[in-house]
Design a protein around this nucleic acid. Structure first.
Lengths: 351, 351
DNA sequence: ATGAAAGCGCTAACAG
DNA sequence: CTGTTAGCGCTTTCAT
């Protein structure tokens, strides 16, 4: 083992008896260089186990080939898939991905981003934990021209790249389907108050409202707000529905803001002796892996998660390399209604 | 906006009329420095919007305060939780986490690690895709004293830090429970052939065998091997069980290598008119979120995923700072049998 | 076709 | 208490 200590370009240069510049040229196959010297240098590099020091390079060229990804959490179905999408694009472009999660705390989010910026990431992909809390902070980032693309949730009015599912449309499709199945007393079941503010959730609710309006139903019912917030979403939803029923609340259909919430809704309904879908039809959002194995299999709205990650990453890289020359992009990808049995529709073939 | 271009220490020095070193001292509160100069410097730093350039610092101190995490995938229940654990520890220690996944390809895994090393991460946490394919590569890493901790799966015989669930024990607990419920014709349902080689899976199988041996049952049955491999695990398991049953195979209990596989097993069983747990008891592994809402609620083995991530990260940081002085650690965390209804046990209270 | 030299922004040893 | 100087390992301009 002679490569005890990592060799650098200088070592190679000395070894071969040329200058550092020549080594550089050989390694990068740039400029004119004698084939023989080139070969000798490459050979020496191999022998010495040379590996480029990317942080030195980064310092010199003022570019790290690294992007930052900050989300509100990583354990969920949605963000983990987004991450894989980002990772895929990053890898094929020889970028690294620095990941960190804010756990939904706006100040933590700022700290993380500051840290990533100090590490001189070339750009950022972030799912902001709150639409307002950090508004000034983000305004400053765009002001400073930091390449930035928001995903899933946005900061209203901020002129910044953004990619997400068309949540309004998703909410509309889900609700319209419920209406088409003849349901008329529909409720929207949301999640904890912090999450409730996210534009993704707000969008789903708007879609729900629009569908109802089309049927001349003006009264909307939302279950969730006001309840203690600290529980897992499933539990929270269970409580919200249980509470509603115990107050004598009526319903024949429910649109849950996501699949976890839908599970809780169904469980609460069943605990009260209501059958799904016979008595109450339920639609979720996300199409988590297990939703199709649920009993009843859950009708839900699928998001192109991986694609969101990929699009966000591609867009960011474009922004990094081409700067302001590429125009502002706010991309909404189409959701897809996946009809199963929890909504009372049978046998359309999709499992 | 006067901070068009990021100010560096030199700028501050010139601004205040001191040397760069003094600026350094003020910023880091090191050495003796006049309170007034200190204040003036700090003020200037604030005014100029100074932010340290961590890549310059990294180059100088030969330390990036960044670790690499490479897994076989990020979308699964297990790894996403591990990642959150790693992220947590990293954040509190002001480390960054560069994440990348190999998607189970050994050569991709090597490339990723090489890239991370070139970026000069201070250490690596990796879930190796295969126990043998990259053996030499990993041997070289330990030889070169790269701080490294393996998680979930290991390379047999490699003297390297490691943290995982005690999978053998998990398999044993699951199987013993099945036996205690009076089942005697047990099968082990594994997953695709690539995954099947992983030491985590091998461990679970050993545990299954040990429990059977204790009951003087020597014949073990494994479902899965030989089938086409490209499907999602749930589907794969469905096929494996269906195939077995169609051949006249008998069983009254099944230990599935993970929860997704268990879902497939149950679905296949039910499709053949067998009831779970009355006719066949089923135990899974992982305790995914949705397993408790399954019908029947799935008995399974829970892993301390987040803790694995945290332990791995702590261990790595220790290794990074203290080097060889801390002795080799191979940590196996205890799994926990979560008894629900798919195994035929009722009402022990755990949901 | 090759080399010398400067410098990215920071830290740290050594002087004063 | 403060300043000078020398790099970390690479890229790049300008000479030769």
């Amino acid at each position: 083992m002679m490569k005890r200590v990592r060799a650098d370009m200088d070592t190679i240069a000395r070894e071969v008896g040329v200058s550092k510049t020549t080594v550089y040229r050989a390694l990068h196959n740039k400029g004119r260089i004698h084939p023989d010297t080139r070969e000798r240098i490459l050979q020496a590099a191999r022998d010495l186990g040379y590996r480029p020091n990317l942080v030195a390079r980064s310092l010199r060229v003022q570019k790290t080939s690294t992007v930052g990804l900050v989300t509100v959490g990583l354990t969920g179905w949605f963000y983990s898939h987004v991450l894989e999408g980002v990772d895929g694009i990053a890898q094929t472009n020889h970028y690294g991905v620095l990941v960190a999660c804010s756990n939904g705390f706006p100040d933590r989010e700022r700290e993380i981003i500051q840290m990533l910026l100090d590490k001189r990431v070339d750009g950022l992909i972030v799912a902001p934990s709150d639409p307002e809390e950090n508004r000034e902070f983000y305004e400053e980032l765009v002001e400073m021209q930091v390449p930035l693309v928001l995903i899933d949730r946005y900061i209203p009015g901020l002129p910044v790249d953004f990619v997400a599912t068309n949540n309004e449309l998703g909410g509309y499709l889900a609700t319209r389907h419920l209406l088409q199945m003849g349901r008329r007393r529909l409720v929207f079941v949301s999640n904890g108050s912090r999450e409730r503010r996210a534009t993704s959730v707000v969008g789903r609710f708007s879609g729900y409202e629009r569908a109802l309006r089309e049927c001349d139903i003006c009264q909307t019912v939302e279950l969730g707000p006001g309840l203690p917030d600290i529980l897992p979403e499933e539990e929270y939803a269970y409580n919200a529905v249980t509470h509603y029923l115990s107050q004598g609340g009526q319903l024949d259909g429910a649109f849950a803001v996501n699949d976890d919430v839908a599970y809780g809704v169904i469980r609460a309904l069943q605990a009260h002796g209501l059958r799904v879908p016979e008595d109450v039809a339920v639609v979720g959002f996300d199409d988590q892996d297990t939703s199709r194995f649920f009993l009843p299999p859950l009708t839900t709205v699928a998001q192109p998660m991986r694609e969101i990650g990929e699009k966000a990453a591609s867009l960011l890289l474009e922004r990094i390399t081409r700067g302001k020359s590429v125009s502002l992009q706010q991309i909404l990808l189409a959701p897809r209604l996946v009809v199963r049995q929890s909504c009372g529709a049978y046998g359309n073939g999709e499992r």
